[in-house]
Design a protein around this nucleic acid. Structure first.
Lengths: 228, 228
DNA sequence: ATTTATTGATAGTAACGCTATTATTTTTGA
DNA sequence: TCAAAAATAATAGCGTTACTATCAATAAAT
């Protein structure tokens, strides 16, 4: 799997970028260092000018790859969800027992990324932190419907859909599989955020992980006689 | 209750504003029209200059009430959570049956605000929409820890804590009452957002409300023999 | 009626979010 | 290997944002 992941190129909707950042050294540096800089100063203070200074390149050159920092965030988060999706598919497709498969699925989606899988220039640990802290900002905009129609969120949607399918494999009669899938995905990010900044709003910590919480939550709702 | 709510003044941490907007006509106009304008153009495009034009007042005057638009958002969302908390307390404190109390609590927290309770100058219907679309932006910042220490999120935290207490009244042995409470609160906003913009990521719609989904989710987890 | 507080008007500044133009370097492919 | 093409860098510029400062005009309070 490690090898497969290393050779993998996440397929990102090509309207998100003006020029494919994977197609050049500068492009890769933009991606690599934008992750470091966004993690460091936050997306709100992040600018292409600062990024340019960081990589010894010019602001105007960065604009040839991405229209604006919003599109760059869409790129980074799409990459993250695509990467998670691959992990999900490769890890769970050999599991035949539906409950075991769901358990593993929840684990992959809700766990913290602990080590940089050395995927070339992309630091997945920091990218995971960025997704926790900034992902919501990519869709909480006035342009969300237009961008959704353009397909900018399709990888994320496909991921949530996969989770929904795994849920239904365990309990075909559960009435809210899609909402449960989106609750797990978004809720896990939220519990991680709370763990780091609002510990009084979560039971999760290093020991009681979001994974444990969500596995309990999900399996309590499935195969429950109340359904149907 | 209507009367009580009309006379109510939500108690907002006084470092959020420079001058209490409730203390003057201009202050009330700032609050009233900022809700309309943020709903109209979104928080990202919202500026004090535009608000000034809208209310026929000067940008610099608005700056005498709020340091910046971030603080104004904190004010509006704090007000919203305080208002919700009052509804919660007044509606549920007479309910003695814990399950019934929890059911009502979930309903209040997860439902859409349908009519403007004519609370003076504040349009709660639009404010509810603003909370759905913008609340995350108030805490997904680099300053969150400092602002949390200052107490800017205390109303929200108190609300989630109340929900946690109601959960524990139903099932004292449930191991994740705080996470469940924060999942309901944040998750409801998210499901409403999905319903409006990503219908393929939720089972909720006009008929199947977030309330129905969360009541099912919560009660499936409580009084479950697996606990303890 | 006059001090005091509030609001408005104007100006200014640094940074942001770009776009345009031209110069320089790097790549390529004939 | 040389010339054309492509990519990058440098510079400038423009409108807007996010303020701060100053001073004038009004309104409120004593």
């Amino acid at each position: 799997m490690e090898r497969i992941l290393q050779d993998l190129k996440v397929n990102i909707h090509n309207n998100i970028y003006l020029k494919d950042p994977e197609s050049s050294n500068l492009g890769k540096k933009i991606v690599e260092f934008s992750i470091l800089l966004i993690d460091e100063i936050g997306f709100d203070s992040f600018t292409f000018k600062k990024l340019g200074e960081k990589i010894g390149s010019n602001e105007s050159s960065i604009y040839r790859y991405f229209e604006n920092k919003h599109k760059l965030l869409l790129y980074l988060t799409s990459w993250y969800w695509g990467w998670l999706e691959y992990q999900l598919v490769f890890t769970t497709n050999s599991i035949s027992d539906p409950s075991e498969k769901l358990r593993k699925t929840i684990e992959i989606v809700t766990r913290t990324t602990k080590e940089d899988s050395s995927f070339s220039h992309i630091n997945e640990v920091l990218l995971n932190k960025i997704v926790i802290n900034e992902y919501s900002k990519s869709y909480l905009t006035k342009e969300v419907d237009k961008e959704n129609k353009e397909g900018y969120f399709s990888i994320y949607k496909r991921l949530v859909n996969r989770i929904k399918d795994v849920i239904l494999e365990v309990d075909i009669r559960y009435p809210f599989p899609t909402s449960l899938a989106s609750t797990i995905t978004e809720g896990a990010l939220h519990q991680h955020f709370l763990k780091d900044h609002f510990s009084s709003l979560t039971d999760c910590d290093e020991k009681t992980t979001p994974t444990i919480y969500f596995i309990d939550l999900v399996f309590n709702s499935l195969n429950n006689q109340k359904n149907g």
